[in-house]
Amino acid sequence: MRNITNHLGETTVLSETTCEKALGVIITSDLKWNKQCVSASARAKRALGQIKSSFTYLSKETIIPLYTALVRPHLEYAVSSWSAHTKSNIKILERVQKRAAKLVKTIRDKPYEQRLRYE
């Protein structure tokens, strides 16, 4: 807690925080992006859940535009400022892509690497 006096002589109490959200990006006092990656992943997973519950059958032709329009923006928003560069953060974000690839019923049982190469 810190007291600040303005030019009128009024005192304002400022509290210290370890985490702030500005323009949708979570900034922590240690400047690590773990919370931002978890938050972006959670928003993207919710969008995937909406897609899954809205469609009875998802082919590659339907999932790609839906993923591109509804899921990827959550993962890519302001990425130039918070780029995930640690392995743990990359894994958090890649789990969303793995989950999206499993939505395509014809390739659901294949390993992840084969699902990515599927045409």
Score class of each variant (00 low, 15 high):
T86P: 10
T5D: 01
Q50K: 13
S15A: 12
T28N: 14
Q36V: 10
R115F: 11
G49H: 02
E119Q: 15
L14T: 00
T28V: 04
K21L: 05
T28F: 03
A100T: 09
Y57G: 03
R99S: 11
T5I: 10
H85G: 06
I92P: 11
S80E: 14
E76L: 10
C37W: 08
E119W: 13
S41K: 09
E16W: 02
T86K: 13
M1V: 06
H85C: 14
I4V: 15
K87W: 07
R99K: 09
I107R: 01
I92N: 07
D30Y: 05
S80Y: 13
I4M: 09
I64A: 06
A47M: 13
I63R: 02
V71Y: 03
L14D: 00
A42F: 01
K35I: 02
T106D: 06
Y57E: 08
I4N: 04
V104L: 01
F55L: 15
E16G: 01
E16L: 08
F55A: 11
K32V: 14
K105E: 12
R108A: 14
A44T: 01
S83V: 06
V71G: 00
K105W: 10
P73Y: 09
T68I: 08
N3S: 12
I107A: 04
L31Q: 05
C19F: 04
I90G: 03
L75R: 03
G9L: 09
Q50P: 01
I64C: 11
K91P: 01
L8A: 08
L75A: 07
T86M: 04
E94M: 02
I92A: 11
V79A: 15
T56E: 08
R99M: 12
V71L: 03
E119R: 15
Y57N: 07
H7P: 02
D109C: 12
D30K: 15
S39L: 00
L23S: 07
I92Q: 14
I92W: 07
L23M: 07
K102E: 08
R72L: 14
S81L: 13
T17N: 01
G24C: 04
S80V: 14
H7A: 15
L103M: 15
K87Q: 15
I107T: 11
P111G: 06
I107V: 14
E20D: 05
A101H: 13
R95W: 03
E20A: 07
R2I: 11
A22Y: 14
I107Q: 01
K21R: 14
M1S: 08
G9P: 06
A78L: 07
N6L: 13
D109R: 14
S54F: 00
V79S: 15
H85W: 06
R117E: 10
T17D: 00
V104A: 01
R115Y: 12
T86Q: 11
K105D: 07
Q36G: 11
V38L: 13
S88D: 13
K102Q: 12
K91F: 02
S88W: 01
S29V: 07
E16F: 04
T17F: 01
T28L: 03
S53C: 13
G9V: 08
A101G: 05
I51N: 00
A42N: 13
P111N: 09
T12A: 11
R115I: 05
T56R: 05
G49K: 05
L58D: 10
A22K: 06
P73R: 02
I4Y: 13
K52C: 07
T17R: 03
K52A: 07
L103W: 10
Y112E: 05
T62A: 08
P73G: 02
K32E: 15
R43F: 00
A78V: 08
